[in-house]
């Protein structure tokens, strides 16, 4: 696969370019890597909080409950009911939404309407809560302002756009 080339090629290219420019590549690497270790230590507390909350949400059956509540709203925007659980989980948990995505593909088929909408959503969204927590946690920002609502607006737009574009392109 082409995709597996990208990362090794990128690293090799950076190292070769560094050698050409007469940089002490290994010393330089180690110097940078040390900063990585400091960042992880500052991230551990915030990530623990986030991961525990997500684990509780998954274990409590809360996702199914929320899904029932949101189904009517989703159908207003043309989002098929099979995909609602993916919409709920995709901003919260990367591994959780991947599992749900796989089960949608299995149950509805990858070339069905819900299967295609789910594929677009899985490809067009990132784990919003994780990104917000990691990025602001790493620099110790406590007041995140309007970030989360804005990012969730973005997520919602991609859900609605997924349903719309799949309808346009395929049906």
């Amino acid at each position: 696969m082409l995709a597996s080339f990208i990362i090794p090629f990128f690293i090799a290219a950076v190292v070769v370019y560094g050698m050409v420019k007469k940089v002490n590549v290994f010393d330089c690497f180690a110097e940078g890597a040390r900063q990585g270790a400091d960042i992880v230590i500052s991230l551990l507390p915030v990530l623990t909080g986030l991961v525990i909350a997500v684990a509780m949400f998954n274990a409590s059956g809360g996702a199914e409950l929320l899904e029932k509540l949101l189904r009517p709203a989703a159908s207003l925007f043309g989002i098929p009911s099979e995909v609602v659980s993916l919409c709920i989980l995709s901003p919260v948990s990367g591994s959780g939404s991947l599992t749900i995505f796989e089960s949608i593909l299995k149950e509805c088929g990858p070339d069905s309407f819900p299967g295609r909408v789910a594929s677009v959503i899985a490809g067009a969204t990132e784990t919003t809560f994780y990104a917000v927590t990691v990025y602001f946690g790493s620099v110790g920002i406590k007041k995140t302002g309007a970030v989360l609502p804005c990012a969730l607006i973005g997520d919602f737009v991609s859900f609605a756009a997924a349903a719309l574009t799949v309808k346009w392109f395929f049906y």
Binding site: V15, C28, E31, G36
Partner: peptide, 17 residues
């Protein structure tokens, strides 16, 4: 991954890439 990419980035930065 943080150590790896911070290290690789440091090379890319020092070399002007």
């Amino acid at each position: 991954s943080l150590c790896l990419w911070n290290g690789v980035m440091n090379i890319a930065e020092k070399s002007g890439l």
